[in-house]
Amino acid sequence: MTDTGYVQILDLVCGGILLTAVLMLWRRELAAIVRLLVVQGVLLALLAALMGVRESSTELFVVAAGVLVLKAIVLPAVLRRVLRDSGEAREAEPLVNVTASLLAAALLTLLAYGLSRPLVALAPSPTTRALPVGLAVVLLGFFVLVTRRRALSQVVGFLLLDNGITATAFLATAGVPLVVELGVSLDVLLVVLVMQVLAARMRLSFGRTDLDGLRELRD
């Protein structure tokens, strides 16, 4: 693969990741958001594969396959199950409305660019120049966590955050050591499973998964 071709594909993939993140902020249908998550998972796997090609490392291909399975198949499947059980299809009223969310997303992306300057400066290369995308996705994910009311939306926010970190890891270091990567993936999977169980219990106890109901423990 030529350098320019690699850079173009890389930028495309990274752009896709950021775009899906912003779209997740925009859309209200939970099913659509889960679909966007699948797309983002695929793009992440693509990114890993791309790095594998670049570094000609088989390990990265394995990682890419793992990412594909986990982020594009398993986790969305879990989310769909939650979605089906809960029967609540829309993120009706986010705490910050969509317009403001999009404006905030713009600001957060700018901040990510500003922040990643020293990171890029350490080893300027096409790969690291895409680092702001990863950081921006992290911040967007956090933003979703803070502003979305549904339990499912929060899980999505967490996954977005995690995807951002994964992207950052690939872009900055071509992935962390495998043992760490495994640990991380297992942890993320378990967290989401725990949350699925919790969401089910929440529905049992509260009748819905609106997180506003969780305000009994307070001072």
Partner: peptide
Amino acid sequence: VEATWKYV
């Protein structure tokens, strides 16, 4: 449930 959700 509430405490666990927040915790996790």
